[in-house]
Simulated scan of single mutants.
Amino acid sequence: MTQKAPTRRKGGWPAVASVAGATFTVVTSEMLPVGLLTPISHDLAVTEGTAGLTLTVTGLVAAISAPSLIPMLGRFDRRTVLCALLALLAAGNLLAAWSPAISVLLLARVLVGVGMGGVWAVAASLAGRLVPPRSAASATSLIFSGIAVASVLGVPAGAFLGELAGWRAAFAGAGGLSLLVLAALALTLPPLPAEGDVRLGAVLRLAGAPRVRTGLIVVALVVTGHFAAYTYVRPVLEELSGVDAGLIGTLLLVYGLAGVAGNFAAGAAAARSPRITLLVLGGTLAVTMALVPILGLTALAAAGLLVVWGLAYGGVSVAAQSWMLAAAPQAREAASALFAGVFNAAIALGALVGGLTADAAGTTAVMWLAAAFAAGAALVLGVGPRVSR
């Protein structure tokens, strides 16, 4: 009688790569309207400002859904949950591609926001369950690289597809990508039973724990400052640095590539010391953004500052996640959900604060305000409680 060969346990690096594909897909889906606002507004007969709500709505819904979904998911297997969330993301993108009116498009973007918040909250804490402990830091960096790579490849690819075949084709492509990632998750992830029954009250109470609270404040300050400045980086480069419009895309690509490198460098450093890593990143961002109006007066100088900016900000997500996991090792999903909620809320707040400041005092003031936010984050880290690696 022949013995049946033992089945190989799923998981490991193929599963980590699939989860990275999920983070890439949700961030690409979130940011897709950035390069498509003009054709969307023309096709649906709305202003570009109204079309811009497709981005705002998604970020706000993700900020709310990230901390609230984890208690709702209860003890559902996280493998099943991730697959369901990718299916929801696919449905949102495909509905967006079909949308006959702005109201339908906004509804589709609500679905994308729910999918995005849920995927980020669940995926961010999975690295340690998919690979051995010694590889958890590298796996976390790979999962978060999906965010950085989406800004370099995902959004420009969507804009390019929109130019070739129309904005609806770009959303349809994002829907198809969501289904492919769903299949990859189903094939590579092992069963991932819930680590505990998390209640909403417990999630909110966790936010009051000193080390968790410090991490959330740092995330709020750094991300708000970054997006206040980065939202207006184009006018800054054109007005202060004299960069030609045709060179803007190249400089932003360089910035994005630096961000990918910063993500992996910070992941390795944060495994040793999340606090020191975040201190360095916050301080570097503060100095770099403050120097843009002073030293970034030529295209070459601006490019150099953008590289440093990209390296520093590219490491923020993975370093902050390392802090949150170290601050609440027994409540990893709840901490990740809070992290994702605050991060997405800070994106919306940063764009709002940057716009108000730019209108009131100009783009130079935006850069200095952003630097002050980053410096505030470094100050909080300097005086606040510490976490063990």
Rank of each mutant, 00 (worst) to 15 (best):
T7K: 14
W13H: 14
A17M: 14
A22T: 07
P33I: 05
L37W: 00
E48P: 08
L53I: 03
T58Y: 02
V61H: 08
A63S: 14
I64N: 00
P67K: 03
G74N: 05
R75A: 13
F76E: 07
R78I: 04
T80H: 14
V81W: 01
A84S: 14
A90H: 04
A90D: 05
G92A: 09
L95C: 09
L105S: 05
A108H: 06
L111C: 12
M116Y: 05
G117C: 12
G117V: 13
A121F: 13
L126D: 09
L130S: 08
L130C: 08
S135N: 11
A139T: 08
A139M: 10
G146A: 10
A148I: 01
A148Y: 02
V149M: 12
V149S: 13
V155W: 07
W167L: 11
A170W: 09
G173I: 01
A174Y: 08
G208N: 12
P210N: 11
R211T: 15
V212N: 01
G215S: 03
G215W: 07
A220M: 14
L221T: 06
V223H: 02
A228R: 03
L237W: 07
G242E: 09
V243P: 00
L252N: 09
G259M: 15
A266C: 09
S273M: 06
R275T: 13
T277F: 02
L281V: 13
G282M: 03
A286Q: 10
T298Y: 10
S317N: 15
L325W: 02
A328V: 10
P329Y: 06
E333N: 11
E333V: 02
A335Y: 04
F343G: 06
N344Y: 04
A346P: 07
I347G: 00
L349V: 15
A360E: 01
M367N: 11
M367D: 04
M367A: 13
W368P: 08
F373K: 02
A375H: 09
A378K: 01
P385R: 01
V387F: 01
